[in-house]
Design a protein around this nucleic acid. Structure first.
Lengths: 105, 105
DNA sequence: GACGTATTTGTACAAACATGCAAATATCTC
DNA sequence: GAGATATTTGCATGTTTGTACAAATACGTC
């Protein structure tokens, strides 16, 4: 079993749940990082559930956490996650691998 | 609950399982569509399991099926899936929505 | 029609998962 | 220190999911 592929599957699985995806979208649309209470207002779920979802997202590197007093401030790991999704999109679309494209005529 | 968001979550969940993702990769790398038996050789799973995974992928529009005698020929829905992944990547990265970009200076 | 191959479906099962509630922990304010 | 707020953790629970095996179905070949 390829660990790299497993990691990608884990990333996709983390994004592939409605409430977690909603949290990600919520973080998309705010310029400033948000705490968990703010993020769980959007979902109808309990705070403990939001906490667990955020833990999952953090474990997959989707969000970054910063302690600030009694709050945890979450921010999206925009560049890295977008990059991984685009890499998959490129592979699926059948684009050539990124190994010195355009050289050696 | 937003149906569009749910559909995207379902797509990501379908891709977010190791054996299913392996099938997708396998279809990536062959030019010609493949039947289910060929695809399940890569995973260590039973043929019935591959059948169910392919059904899941087909339901999400990830693969297309064509009956050919007693075989089912599967092919990747490359453009559409790549497009949906890139749309998500764009949203996550915070790029502006695709509504007449570049007009009206 | 008999047989072989490809695929699906029924059944069972263990593991993972999403969830809510209550309790615990951490930290701020007074 | 008491009380309030933010978050995590323990526990219970119902659901989903990935899997294997056997049986059923579909179809080509002889």
């Amino acid at each position: 079993m390829l660990p790299e592929r497993q990691q990608l599957a884990d990333l996709l699985k983390a994004l592939g749940e409605y409430n977690r995806l909603s949290i990600v979208y919520e973080l998309c649309h705010c310029d400033e990082p948000q705490n968990a209470m703010c993020l769980c207002e959007n979902c109808t779920v309990d705070a403990s559930v939001a906490s667990r979802h955020l833990k999952t997202l953090a474990q997959e590197g989707i969000v970054e956490v910063e302690k600030k007093g009694r709050e945890r401030i979450y921010s999206l790991n925009r560049v890295e996650i977008a990059r991984r999704l685009r890499t998959l999109a490129d592979q699926i679309e059948g684009l050539p691998e990124q190994t010195s494209v355009g050289s050696s005529s």
